[in-house]
Amino acid sequence: MNWSAVWSIYRFEMDRFFRTFAQSFISPVISTSLYFVVFGAAIGSRIDQVDGVSYGAFIVPGLIMLTVMTQSISNASFGIYFPKFIGTIYELLSAPVNFLEIVMGYVGAAATKSLFIGLVILATSTFFVDITIQHPLAMIAFMVLTCLSFALMGFIIGIWAGNFEQLQLVPLLVVTPLVFLGGSFYSISMLPPFWQTVTLFNPVVYLISGFRWSFFGLADVPIALSLAAIAGFTLLCLGIIWWIFRTGWRIRQ
């Protein structure tokens, strides 16, 4: 393993994060506060409790997941797309590194950034609602796995994208709707039976459900299924990336 390369890429990506630290830090704090104002105050006043948890607290895991997923994708996709765009990818391709080392550097950094933002949102939410975390280790594990798996997905999008529009396309048209419809702000049990069944085809449901379980011990789907879903998703992304580097798809002309 070329650990030095992994560390170099990781540091390079983190440097960019720190260069725009204020933006990275302030933006999630403001958007989280807005969500609490809109969902917590406006809607929460009409929905008292969900499965015994106050609505304000209930949405915290979904809110964290929403940001963590979209941030992981955008960080990782931009991270690998930008070298392609400005041409500096030549150096990665001509360096003695394998796909795993490149992925570890970029995805590791993207996941670190979104993990940080996830924790900032969690901290911000404590100013608005009382939060108890029943399974803190599981909470961290779920968050880390989500950051990693979605950063892997973002990495694939970054390699696939041929322009900035495409870079935004998948997060905007696929991921955000899936996250919103995946029970971020409601429990699946609140839906009519037909839509409950439809929702189970949304992979994000399993991630949010598992994550929410780590907070309140409440889950829409069995926790083992959540873990299996996230593990399967991670392996699928890794498999695609392995294929990309083996064939040179979109990176080695």
Binding site: N2, S4, A5, S8, G87, T88, E91, S94
Partner: peptide
């Protein structure tokens, strides 16, 4: 192998010394 490409492909916001250190690290040195 060291490669100096035809196009000026550089990360614009990186400092010169950091850019050089990055390359060395990437090559496992």
């Amino acid at each position: 192998v060291g490669l100096v490409p035809q196009e000026i492909n550089l990360e614009p916001f990186q400092k010169v010394a950091d850019a050089v250190r990055f390359s060395r690290g990437l090559f496992g040195k």
